[in-house]
Amino acid sequence: MHQDLPLGIFSGGHGISGRSLNNGGIVIAVDALDTIEMLDDSRIRLGPGAVWIDVARTLAGHGRALTSGDAGTVGVGGLATAGGIGWFVREHGLTIDHLRSVEVVTADGELVRASADENPDLFWAMRGAGANFGVAVSFEFDTDPIGAEVGFALLVYYPDDIASFLQDWGAAIENAHPSVTGTLMISPADRRTAVQALIAVDSDDPDTIIERLQPFGGLAPLASQSVRLTPYTALLVPPPGTDTQHGLGEPHGHSALARHLDPELARALAELLASDAPFILSIRSAGGATADVSPDATAYGWRDANFLVVTLGGGTADFEKRWKQLLPHTKGMYLSFETDTGPEVLARAFPAPHLERLRKLKARWDPTGLFRDNFPIDPS
């Protein structure tokens, strides 16, 4: 007897949204498909259950890397079908920009290969909206060369004016060398707002690293600063006790993409930080080489966004009101950090022409809507 049950797809087990799991339904766990295999000097085959720290360690032995988020415990499957904004996104683009083929079990149970030459429409959809189209069981990626070490800076600012600081930070990132990628971490719980900046520089030359970090030194009063050389793999290892995410839907998360940290968005972010709720605000670099790919090349279409804005926590009425007031100053949304659902959220996830094309492809590849656990696209 056919039963209409929730269906989740579980890969590495890190997913913040919790949509990989469900109560009373079916979960397809692909975490055992954790293959990591070098195919030649630059190409690698990965299973969806492999985690990115293991991928990075394997590639490091070959002098290669694949930009892939900033947490090594994330599974390949979820990130490689959503986008992939990693430490070297400005230099090398998104993770999906390195994908050359993917094997997918479709709604009718067929195993198909999608690439630029085979099922190209499915390949387009899998790079940004993959959770709607099947269970990815194998990926092939091209990788990039990397040195034994890279530069990493940790700066702690105490800005006098947070909105002005955010504008200056945004300008500094946009004008930085492509090898530079930065993330801000801000918590409004502090009596005086402290801003933690994490900056990676893809170089092993100390003089080059210091030169490329210079624009960031004078943005605001510094409470502390450190700069070191470290293996790229070390950037993916979370501090002890901080990685407690197991795909259960906590904490509550929001995301938005923005072309610039312009005065309107900066003021809205400052207002958000004045909320009555405890939360963490993260502002991550995007842009750079991401924009070298045509917006129409993949289902992920926000190629001109230079920043990813993420909140973890919040959830109060005051917080939600301030978040909604911020949205008109943004452009699009990144799927992996958003826990809200609904048509209005889906409309922010994809540009309108992309969503129209995705609906037509959904009608072809999954007409009954079997895969609907993660931002479901209605084929009608």
Rank of each mutant, 00 (worst) to 15 (best):
G69F: 00
F141N: 03
T95R: 05
V102S: 09
H98L: 11
G78A: 04
V112S: 11
L79M: 07
F88I: 05
P120Q: 02
I85W: 00
I85V: 15
A129N: 08
I85R: 07
R127V: 13
I85G: 06
P145T: 05
L99S: 10
D97P: 08
A80D: 01
L111N: 08
F141K: 05
N119I: 11
V104E: 12
W124S: 07
N132R: 03
I96S: 08
A129Q: 03
A82C: 14
V76K: 00
V135A: 10
G130R: 06
E140Y: 00
G69A: 04
R90S: 10
H92Q: 15
T73M: 00
E91L: 14
G134V: 14
D121H: 03
E91K: 15
D144H: 14
V102K: 04
S101E: 15
V105D: 10
A71E: 00
N132Y: 04
I85L: 13
D121E: 15
R100W: 02
S101G: 11
D97K: 03
G128L: 08
T81R: 01
V74Q: 02
G69T: 02
P145G: 01
L79D: 04
G128V: 08
W124T: 03
G93P: 06
L99I: 14
D142N: 11
L79C: 07
G130Q: 06
W87Y: 10
G128I: 09
T143Q: 07
G93I: 09
N119R: 14
A107W: 12
T143L: 02
L99P: 02
G75E: 01
V112C: 11
W87G: 09
G134S: 11
A116H: 07
I146R: 01
A116Q: 07
F123W: 09
A82D: 10
F141G: 07
D121W: 05
G93Q: 01
G109W: 12
V137T: 15
G75A: 03
S101I: 05
N132C: 06
L79A: 06
G83E: 01
F123V: 11
S138F: 04
I85E: 04
G109T: 07
A114Y: 09
D117M: 13
G84F: 05
S115Y: 05
G86F: 09
M126C: 15
V102T: 12
S115D: 10
E103L: 08
V76Y: 00
L111I: 14
E110V: 15
G77E: 01
V104N: 09
A114C: 13
L122K: 10
I146W: 01
L79T: 04
D144R: 15
